[in-house]
Simulated assay, not measured.
Amino acid sequence: MNQPLAYIHPEAKIAHNVVVEPFSTIYKNVEIGEGTWIGPNVTIMEGARIGKNCKIFPGAVISSVPQDLKFAGEDTTAVIGDNTVVRECVTISRGTIDKMRTVVGNNCLIMSYAHIAHDCIIGNNCILVNAVQLGGHVEMGDYAIIGGSSAAHQFVKIGAHAMVSGGSLIRKDVPPYVKAAREPLTYAGINSIGLRRRGFSSEQINDIQHVYRLLFMSGLNYTEALDKIELELAPSKERDEILNFVRNSGRGIIKSYFAKDAN
């Protein structure tokens, strides 16, 4: 839609039924898919790739230059999937030479004042509540939720279906399917309510609970617990996802509140 009070660079690729409200600025090298709404006073900078049926609310800045002193002007992108909502004053930086892109998946809700730094990879159906701050290179699995005013250290990974309490300082990796809370951030059970809402069976939920009892509450160190899980529990998608996540954790995973001195 041609909006005379907005600036749209002539080289930007905007689908025919995109709505751009007054006083928004869209730079060149931008692509925006069908049905997307760009609210007033939005800034969409070079390298933005925004999908279909998204909603970008006032004050948001998409694909800004990374806040990384190593950034040397490389041609990178910030990708937002379909049906994602970006609320007021959210900032999303484009990538650096590390991954060459920052990604927010489909059907996500990024609430007001959140920041997603360069090279973050956010899965589908994720929620960042108000004022969540993600450092560079953070990764979130599908359906992960981070409570408001939380801050994630760079390179942290948060597993699929995990739920992190508001006001958290996320310094370690958070495995899939868990709830994480308290300070320092610790394991606080599995996200059973969220899993039920998403169609996980009672058997699947029980199997996930069994894995985490061995990992966090058995008194074994993580290496011993992982070996015991692999030996005693039948293979499953969920079991294997947890094993792979813990074994490949770069920063180490959060500990258990119930067995803080076990590892």
Results as ranks from 00 to 15, higher is better:
residue 256 S to K: 04
residue 9 H to Y: 10
residue 105 G to Y: 11
residue 58 P to W: 10
residue 72 A to M: 01
residue 173 D to F: 04
residue 62 I to T: 00
residue 119 D to P: 11
residue 158 I to W: 08
residue 94 R to V: 00
residue 20 V to E: 01
residue 191 N to T: 05
residue 66 P to H: 12
residue 52 K to W: 09
residue 12 A to T: 04
residue 154 Q to G: 06
residue 28 K to H: 15
residue 24 S to H: 02
residue 31 E to C: 07
residue 117 A to Y: 00
residue 11 E to F: 05
residue 262 A to G: 10
residue 120 C to E: 06
residue 181 A to K: 10
residue 235 P to V: 13
residue 26 I to A: 01
residue 220 L to S: 04
residue 35 G to A: 06
residue 211 V to W: 12
residue 77 T to G: 06
residue 152 A to D: 04
residue 42 V to N: 00
residue 215 L to N: 12
residue 158 I to L: 07
residue 193 I to K: 12
residue 237 K to R: 09
residue 96 T to W: 12
residue 134 L to C: 00
residue 212 Y to W: 03
residue 3 Q to R: 12
residue 26 I to G: 01
residue 210 H to P: 06
residue 233 L to C: 03
residue 49 R to Y: 00
residue 150 S to A: 12
residue 30 V to Q: 06
residue 88 E to Y: 14
residue 55 K to W: 13
residue 77 T to L: 05
residue 11 E to A: 11
residue 79 V to C: 08
residue 80 I to R: 00
residue 101 R to P: 07
residue 260 K to V: 09
residue 102 T to L: 03
residue 20 V to D: 02
residue 233 L to I: 09
residue 69 L to E: 04
residue 244 N to M: 09
residue 199 G to K: 04
residue 91 T to F: 01
residue 221 N to G: 06
residue 95 G to N: 09
residue 37 W to M: 14
residue 162 A to I: 00
residue 16 H to V: 15
residue 194 G to L: 08
residue 34 E to Q: 15
residue 54 C to G: 04
residue 7 Y to L: 13
residue 226 L to H: 04
